[in-house]
Design a binder for these strands. Sequence first.
DNA 1: CGCGACGTTGATTTGCCTCAACGATTGTGG
DNA 2: CCACAATCGTTGAGGCAAATCAACGTCGCG
Lengths: 200, 200
Amino acid sequence: MPTLKPGYQLILDNVAKHIQLEKKEIEYFIAILQHKKIRKRQYLLQAGDICRYEHFVIKGCLRAYYVDENGFDYIVQFAVEDWWTGDMASFLTGTPATLNIDALEDSEVLMIEKKDIDELFVKVPKFERFFRILMQNAFVAQQQRILLNLSKTADERYLLFRQKYPLLEKRLPQHQIASYLGITPEFLSKIRKNLSKKKK
Amino acid sequence: MPTLKPGYQLILDNVAKHIQLEKKEIEYFIAILQHKKIRKRQYLLQAGDICRYEHFVIKGCLRAYYVDENGFDYIVQFAVEDWWTGDMASFLTGTPATLNIDALEDSEVLMIEKKDIDELFVKVPKFERFFRILMQNAFVAQQQRILLNLSKTADERYLLFRQKYPLLEKRLPQHQIASYLGITPEFLSKIRKNLSKKKK
DNA sequence: CGCGACGTTGATTTGCCTCAACGATTGTGG
DNA sequence: CCACAATCGTTGAGGCAAATCAACGTCGCG
């Protein structure tokens, strides 16, 4: 096989974690991928638009977030290299997105259009399995997050976040983490101050 | 076709919402279902055990919940007729469950064992699609719940819960709803008092 | 340079919890 | 069938976690 551009290798490896593809299937899959670069602060999706793609990040970092009526935003997901993102509700039903997705760094994604995925499911049913497994894992992770939000205090959640995503913790501005944890940036600052005190 | 017991018709209708089955496939599917009755207060699954089944509720009402180190419990899901439940993390990985599931009313479920589901996916690949869609919908619902927990106050969440699940709101004891919403029963009581005041 | 993004700190307020006491209802064993 | 306990909801006093608001320091960058 000719060597692929690095991003494409990343998505093939991602797929290969759950299903094995034939050469022909790989070619077909690669052919429906669309490559896109997004500059820092640029939108990949805006609330109100219809989300017609699933996105796989091959470079950089994105955030998916909801903006409430008062203009506050709440991050539902970060997506760095090797992660999938999108507004699933909008994608599935074709209704306007409630989420915004934008880039926190200059980024690149591979996108699959809905009609191509639907066709992919028919032509290569193994992908039904792949996305089922993807969704199951996401489901478990989200359930975990719901439980943490219900049962833990802010500093516990922050510590667990650091533990689970040490790389993200270093890579992201603090106020983005605060938004993900559901607390104010000021309060996160105070939490960190307390923690550094305790360490001594 | 001979008429089926009512619970079986319910699950077939549930499946039929997303995939169409041949007669043979229906028979095969029905054959792997296991029927079980659970009395009120009885466990369907206890934390620490391994969850080997997916459960479909055909009668009654169950709750899936996590108990923290201090003995407080947090409800992650209610399941009434026509809903699926289980501890997905345990089911997928074969590790001990972190969730408990028990019956809030005398209930009945149809269960599918993991090995039978795995075989089902191979013999009737359409079920990959079915569970993919099921998971996608669950994913969207959970994401919604995360957003509500992050962005809304307790009374807003309560009102939205009533709006979304009016039947559950009538059927469940208040303190179970409080646990689902992530507030204390006392505080829910005060919320309700305020709301009834405002209505006048 | 100057401005905007980011983080910190302190004073004050508030949403929700804790604890305790008290009815109402349910259910259960004697 | 009654007595008593357990479950469920309500109410109030007090406390704490986290939000709000405002001021200020520090970068990085156009």
